[in-house]
Structure formats: C-alpha cells, structure tokens
C-alpha cells in the first residue's frame, strides 16, 4: 500500500508523465480509502485548470 506521501508525488507527476499501470492501480486503491489524498489530487487538477486560464489571459472576470 502506498503512503500518503508517495501518493502526493504521483498526483503531481501524473501531470508531467503517463503513470505506469501498477502506479495507477496503487493510486486508485489508496484514493478509495483516503479522503485527504483525494482532496489533494483534486487540488492538483484545479491548479492545472487555473494556470491554463491564467496563461490565456483569462484571469479574473471576463473582460473582452
């Protein structure tokens, strides 16, 4: 079973490289029983959404 710390690392790295099958399975098993890491993963995804928005200049209320 992966520790929360290891899961944190995978939740970041999945944005930079494809995870292996065993990493995906282990991640899914951990997330099924850990609310804190599930939140962490969603927050990593939210950061990606926010940076995408930012880099297109769509920062803040729509103004054009």
């Amino acid at each position: 079973m992966l520790s929360c710390k290891e899961v944190n690392r995978l939740c970041s790295e999945e944005h930079d490289r494809p995870l292996s099958l065993s990493e995906k399975i282990n991640l899914r098993m951990h997330l099924a029983i850990c609310r804190a890491c599930t939140n962490f993963r969603q927050q990593m995804k939210f950061l990606r959404t926010a940076t995408r928005r930012y880099r297109e200049g769509q920062r803040g209320p729509a103004d054009d």
């Binding site: 520790s3 929360c4 710390k5 804190a36 939140n39 939210f46 959404t49 926010a50 930012y54 803040g60």
Partner: peptide
C-alpha cells in the same frame, strides 16, 4: 507527514468549496 508517510491530522488537505467559482473572482487571482 508522520514517519510512515501519512498526513499529520492537522495537515490533511480539506475539501475546497466550489473552487471553480474562485476563477472568476479578482481577489482569488
């Protein structure tokens, strides 16, 4: 994290309430 790599109870990431709506708020940015 503790020695076994689990979150300290006070450091567990909480649920963020409706983060998407933050994206349209100037203060958030």
């Amino acid at each position: 994290f503790d020695q076994r790599g689990h979150w300290n109870p006070e450091d567990r990431p909480p649920t963020w309430a409706d983060p998407e709506s933050s994206l349209s708020q100037q203060q958030f940015w």
